[in-house]
């Protein structure tokens, strides 16, 4: 399975030991002369679907307009004083979160117009327009293997500092380490698995601690980003 990442690279996934819960979502930061903001991508309509399933959608004030052949929506959450603003194309959507309510859509259009957006079944690619001063960084891909674990995949060059120096176990997708997530008091929250290879670093977080399927997944899955 191959998909296009928002920065134009191709993420290839093989050896998955279980079914992914849905399409891959990406998160990335955009540096601009006005500041930095975060963008999320997902399959078209996924935010609406998920918020309907969680019951949040009923509390939203929804706005929608058409813009250059795509739909622009805003989900205004008065209870939490925030607004999710979305661009929805034929295959994928882009979203960002803005503090406050009664958020106009025009600033979001201005942000989007700084990119050439290519939406295809393989993925959505954002190319900063020449002279826009935009730069993408801190990309992260995320998905879930049903009932087993969540996965976050990052380009290995972004996370060199937290890859253990000691050698890991050799597995299909590179080297594997068991890592532990602890809270601020030092108590163990859960054990995770980290796989790193020449192009990606992947963290697998189990749904249930000590589920043996986590290691089975970690030993069989392979990610490559080129």
């Amino acid at each position: 399975m191959s998909l296009r990442a928002p920065d134009g690279r191709t993420l290839t996934i093989d050896g998955t030991p279980g079914a992914f819960l849905g399409g891959w979502a990406f998160m990335l930061w955009v540096d601009s002369p006005e500041g930095t903001y975060r963008l999320h991508t997902g399959t078209a309509g996924s935010t609406e679907l998920v918020t309907k399933q969680t019951g949040e959608f009923a509390g939203f004030t929804v706005r929608e307009v058409s813009w250059k052949g795509a739909r622009l929506q805003s989900f205004e959450d008065t209870a939490n004083n925030g607004t999710t603003v979305l661009w929805i194309g034929a295959h994928h959507e882009l979203s960002t979160f803005v503090a406050g309510t009664s958020v106009p859509l025009e600033p979001f259009m201005d942000r989007l117009s700084k990119f050439d957006i290519q939406d295809s079944p393989e993925g959505i690619v954002l190319t900063p327009r020449p002279g826009s001063g935009r730069r993408l960084r801190n990309m992260l891909a995320a998905n879930t293997i049903r009932d087993v674990c969540s996965l976050t995949v990052k380009p290995v060059e972004d996370v060199v500092s937290y890859i253990p120096k000691r050698a890991g176990k050799k597995v299909r997708g590179g080297q594997l380490w068991r890592t532990e997530e602890r809270d601020t008091s030092g108590s163990l929250m859960y054990r995770t698995a980290l796989i790193a290879n020449e192009t990606t670093a992947t963290v697998l977080t189990p749904v249930r601690d000590d589920d043996p399927r986590l290691i089975e997944a970690a030993e069989s899955v392979n990610f490559s980003l080129k």
């Binding site: 004030t61 929804v62 706005r63 929608e64 307009v65 058409s66 813009w67 250059k68 622009l72 929506q73 805003s74 106009p104 859509l105 025009e106 259009m109």
Partner: peptide, 26 residues
């Protein structure tokens, strides 16, 4: 750029403002 957009023109024909109308309440 976006539709639907509401624009207001003064009696002299000059545009006073424009806003996208994302909902009936807007």
């Amino acid at each position: 750029g976006a539709t639907p957009t509401l624009l207001k023109y003064g009696a002299d024909g000059a545009e006073q403002w424009r806003r996208v109308a994302g909902s009936d309440a807007d």
